[in-house]
Amino acid sequence: MTPEMNTAVKSGRAQQEKTSSDVILEVKDLKKHFPIKTGILQRTTGVIKAVDGAHFSVKRGETIGIVGESGCGKSTTGRTIIRLYEPTEGKIIYKGNDISHLKEKEMRSSIRRDIQMIFQDPFASLNPRKTLGSILYEPFKVHNLHSEKERQEKIESLLEIVGLDGSFKSRYPHEFSGGQRQRIGIARALTTQPELIIADEPVSALDVSIQAQIINLMEDLQEEFGLTYVFISHDLSVVRHIADTVGVMYLGNMMELAPKEDLYREPLHPYTRALLSAVPVPRQKGVKTREKVVLKGDLPSPSNPPSGCVFHTRCPEAMEECKKVVPAFEEKKSGHYVACHLYK
């Protein structure tokens, strides 16, 4: 069940030979369960299966988009990769090494510099009592990088790289708008010259005109520094724009994983189809309106997920089998993986 993805190379992007050895990150059957504790004795009375089988891999210089609705486990997946949460099961392989159970000290000395994160809320992710200068100084200090003079120069050049003014380093976060703050968050992620960036909903708190600025900036940076992105978002149109490969999650499970072109042109899983059709689209001249699949009901609780295929309670094409047997996550076409009984 190892997704060996065969993604089209974006023109003008990190021009490197793409071979299978170029896979920078591989996630195998990742699971993260949170215990539910009740009473004064804090007995474990159940588990929330936040992530219950995530599989994907991503090549150097490319972008994997992870999409899904709230509660599908996409953020937990991102946070588990960077080991902010301990994985319950499964493997996280970074550059050929299994980092899923590295000790915190080893993580800090080897991995943390390489993998950085960009957060959703630009208002909550920057310390309001620190100047931009000291926000960007901290990663240098933690990782003991560069001399004092170099650090100050780097801070200014980083601010300029993300489209801000170097003189802003003595200002505080509250002086900036949402879009500008997200640029600061990106600058902070770039301080340690990472190779992999996990971006958790980086543009969903922004207005569309600002959102476009940030997406363009992220694309430019990817080209310039050969960055690899894990781009987590609920917005299918944004992911289509930036990703090379897209994984669709539902209730902790990866339902479909495919190169972008395939996924959007020919989605296989009924959930992916419903999700795609639910996106409201600004009408265009001469383009026919698409047929809608409106899903019934709400997302089931991850503490008590449905038996069999987790999507069967809302699936328009559910069969008897779906209620009992969990569908395997298998490759149906080259690089196109799906977990659904319809495709056997």
């Binding site: 005109s209 476009a212 724009h241 959007y264 996106v279 689209v281 600004p282 383009v287 698409r290």
Partner: peptide, 10 residues
């Protein structure tokens, strides 16, 4: 505004 929306088709 219209140009800055990423499209889901096309």
């Amino acid at each position: 505004l219209l140009n800055s929306i990423p499209a889901i088709e096309g």
